[in-house]
Amino acid sequence: MTFTSTVFIGTSLDGYIARPDDDIEWLTSRGERAGDMGYSEFLGSVDAVIMGRNTYDRLIGFGEENWHYGDRHVGVLSTTLPGDADPRITVYRDMDSLVADLDKRGIKHVYPDGGRLIQSFIRAGRVDAFTISVAPVLIGAGHRLFGDLTEDVPLRLVSATDIGGFAQLRYTVQK
C-alpha cells in the first residue's frame, strides 16, 4: 500500500452520520455556526477522493456548485453506477481494482467519504487516520459511522479540540 487514507467526517455524539432517512440537517445547521472545521485545509492535503454510490448521488443532488474537488482524482466504489456516468469520476467495482488503480496513478493521500465506504476501508485495513468532528447532539437513530468489525482497530489519540462547540478528535490507526 503506497497511499495513506484519512477519514474526515462529522457525527452526532451517539455516533450517527445521518438519520434513518439520510437527513443531515442536524449536522449542517450546527456546522454552519462552527465554520469549516479545517475541511478546506484537509481537502488541500489529499490527491484523491473516493466515495460510495449513496454519497455520490447525494453530492450530485446538491448541484454543480458543491463540486469542490477541482483536479483531484475522484472515484466512486459501486457495483451499479454505470462506468460512464460522469466524466469527472472513475467508477470502481471492487476494493482490489480501486487500490491497484490508485497505486498505478501514484496517489499518496486518499479521502474516503461515505458511511459504508468508510466501513469497507476500515475492514480492509485501509484507514490510517481519522478526524471526527462530534456534534453536540444526540439523534438516537440512523446510519452509524462504524459498522460491525471482525477485530479491534487500535487507535492513538493525536488531539482533541473544541471547534465551535464540536469536539474534533484526531486519531491515527496503530498498525
Score class of each variant (00 low, 15 high):
L98A: 03
T28E: 13
S29E: 15
G44F: 14
F146D: 08
A85R: 04
R88H: 02
R144A: 05
L77A: 01
A85F: 11
E151W: 12
T131N: 09
V158N: 11
V76F: 04
D84F: 10
G140N: 02
R123F: 09
A124R: 15
F8A: 10
G115M: 02
G147Q: 07
G35V: 00
V91Y: 09
K104S: 15
D47V: 08
Y39P: 07
D22A: 13
P154S: 12
F166Y: 10
E41G: 15
A167M: 14
E64K: 13
G115V: 04
L43K: 04
V76S: 01
A48D: 07
V76G: 04
A160Q: 11
I89S: 06
D84H: 06
D113M: 06
T6W: 02
N54D: 13
K108F: 04
D162S: 12
R19W: 05
E65T: 14
G70A: 05
L117Q: 05
K104D: 14
I132Q: 03
T131W: 12
S29T: 14
R58Q: 15
V137D: 07
Y39N: 08
I89D: 03
I139P: 01
Y39Q: 10
M95L: 14
V158C: 13
H109Y: 08
F8H: 00
V74N: 01
R126Y: 14
D14F: 10
R116Y: 14
Y39C: 10
Q119K: 09
S40E: 14
N66Q: 15
R156G: 12
G164F: 02
D86V: 03
H73Y: 15
Y92C: 00
R126P: 03
R105D: 09
S5F: 04
D36F: 13
G147N: 09
D47M: 05
G115E: 04
G10F: 12
G114L: 06
K175H: 15
